[in-house]
Simulated assay, not measured.
Amino acid sequence: MRPRRSVNSAWILSVMLASWLAFGPAAGAESDPLPAVKQWESRMVSVGRTVCDLLGRPESTDQLLAQVYYDGTRVFFQMADYTNDASWVACAQRAEAVYRDRYVLPTQGAVPGHWNFTRGLAMDYLRSGDPASRRAVMLLAENAAFARDGTPPAWTMPAEDSREVAYAILSYLDAESVGAPRRARLAMLVEQALGHLDQWFGARTAPVITPFMAGLTAEALIKYYEQTRDPRIPPAIKLALNWLWAHAWISEKEAFWYDSRDTSAASPDLNLLIAPAYAWLYHQTGDSLYRDTGDRIFAGGVKYAWLGDGKHFNQNYRWSFDYVKWRRTTGSMQLHTRAAAVIGDGRDSD
């Protein structure tokens, strides 16, 4: 009998990938086309231009701050990356000139917890090296309400403070991205964020459930998971998403209710703060349930969200770029996973 030859796993993987490229979907095509993505892109450009123009007007600081709430700087940088159109960078700089130069730096970062927006500033520093943006990130991570080291843990334990906890977590991670050391409080805040999900969807001890707050918590935990692979996070997010879809989704209105005090009032403006978590879970698991539910949430938000000011525009485009990214990359990730499972370690089994 001829001896069996060992199999080169890298060679098999390359053959499988080549076969998929040759016989699978054409470049740029999708086996599961994204619903409403063209409308999402169209509104991004048209409304984004309106908001950008408004930021160039000689309005009061308060009026302009209302247009950058939910991190307008981040939104415009993401638009520049997504469209490959550098003109949006100028819009990001306008938003930054309002938020960073007229609010964060003058207050030394001592802003309310729900105004702690560091991602756009970190993106600017990593692109341009502007030390003012790095300083602003550091100040927010150190001095924003609920992010300060001296904040008693009891203040942020209730789920009603989940948004402030989520933003503090993101500010710590963004500060790390521009060179800060890991904050000792980060692990405690992550523990609290997981506790907020449990208060809403596990123990059910929270008096009010607010779906978009759960979306913000999921965003922060996913960002933390990307760095740590904390095994507690995927099942906690899965529990939350299953509960929200089963109990908080209003099918005929294509939106979640705003909170559990009135389960008839739909809030499609907030869909896109929640949909990316479903795309992430689909990306992680390959379970089409999360693809299909996420697509319905995304489509409802795109169709019915009101984008009449910068705040609502930023709400809808703050995290939804990740929805599109995770939906479009899952197929190739699953192929790699299946190929690796077939290949094993490349050694004969007998």
Results as ranks from 00 to 15, higher is better:
residue 2 R to Q: 08
residue 10 A to T: 13
residue 11 W to P: 01
residue 15 V to W: 03
residue 15 V to C: 12
residue 17 L to D: 09
residue 17 L to T: 11
residue 18 A to L: 13
residue 22 A to I: 00
residue 23 F to N: 07
residue 26 A to D: 05
residue 27 A to H: 08
residue 33 P to K: 12
residue 34 L to I: 15
residue 35 P to A: 14
residue 38 K to M: 03
residue 43 R to G: 03
residue 45 V to E: 15
residue 45 V to A: 09
residue 46 S to R: 12
residue 48 G to L: 09
residue 48 G to N: 11
residue 49 R to F: 01
residue 57 R to D: 07
residue 59 E to T: 00
residue 59 E to Y: 12
residue 60 S to D: 09
residue 64 L to F: 06
residue 68 V to N: 04
residue 69 Y to A: 07
residue 74 R to L: 09
residue 81 D to N: 11
residue 83 T to W: 07
residue 85 D to I: 02
residue 87 S to D: 13
residue 88 W to I: 03
residue 91 C to M: 05
residue 94 R to P: 02
residue 95 A to F: 04
residue 95 A to M: 00
residue 96 E to D: 13
residue 97 A to S: 15
residue 100 R to Q: 13
residue 104 V to L: 04
residue 104 V to G: 03
residue 104 V to C: 04
residue 104 V to I: 14
residue 106 P to M: 07
residue 111 V to R: 08
residue 114 H to A: 04
residue 118 T to M: 10
residue 120 G to N: 01
residue 121 L to M: 15
residue 122 A to S: 15
residue 123 M to T: 03
residue 123 M to P: 00
residue 130 D to V: 00
residue 131 P to Q: 11
residue 132 A to H: 11
residue 133 S to G: 10
residue 133 S to I: 03
residue 135 R to N: 11
residue 137 V to S: 08
residue 138 M to H: 10
residue 141 A to G: 06
residue 145 A to N: 02
residue 150 G to Y: 05
residue 152 P to R: 02
residue 154 A to Y: 02
residue 154 A to S: 14
residue 155 W to R: 08
residue 156 T to W: 01
residue 158 P to N: 05
residue 158 P to H: 01
residue 160 E to H: 10
residue 161 D to W: 07
residue 173 L to A: 11
residue 174 D to I: 06
residue 176 E to A: 04
residue 177 S to F: 02
residue 177 S to P: 09
residue 180 A to W: 00
residue 182 R to E: 14
residue 193 A to M: 08
residue 194 L to Q: 06
residue 195 G to I: 06
residue 199 Q to A: 15
residue 199 Q to T: 06
residue 203 A to G: 03
residue 206 A to H: 07
residue 207 P to F: 04
residue 207 P to N: 10
residue 212 F to L: 05
residue 217 T to G: 00
residue 221 L to A: 02
residue 222 I to W: 06
residue 227 Q to R: 15
residue 227 Q to N: 06
residue 228 T to K: 03
residue 233 I to R: 10
residue 235 P to C: 04
residue 241 L to M: 14
residue 242 N to E: 15
residue 243 W to D: 12
residue 245 W to G: 06
residue 247 H to P: 00
residue 250 I to Y: 01
residue 252 E to D: 15
residue 264 S to Y: 00
residue 264 S to I: 01
residue 264 S to W: 00
residue 265 A to H: 14
residue 266 A to H: 08
residue 278 Y to P: 04
residue 279 A to N: 04
residue 285 T to V: 10
residue 290 Y to L: 11
residue 293 T to Y: 11
residue 296 R to D: 05
residue 298 F to E: 05
residue 299 A to N: 05
residue 300 G to C: 10
residue 300 G to E: 09
residue 305 A to F: 00
residue 305 A to N: 06
residue 306 W to Q: 08
residue 311 K to P: 00
residue 316 N to R: 03
residue 319 W to Y: 13
residue 320 S to F: 00
residue 330 T to R: 15
residue 330 T to F: 08
residue 333 M to C: 02
residue 335 L to H: 12
residue 340 A to F: 08
residue 345 D to Q: 12
residue 345 D to E: 10
residue 346 G to A: 05
residue 349 S to T: 13
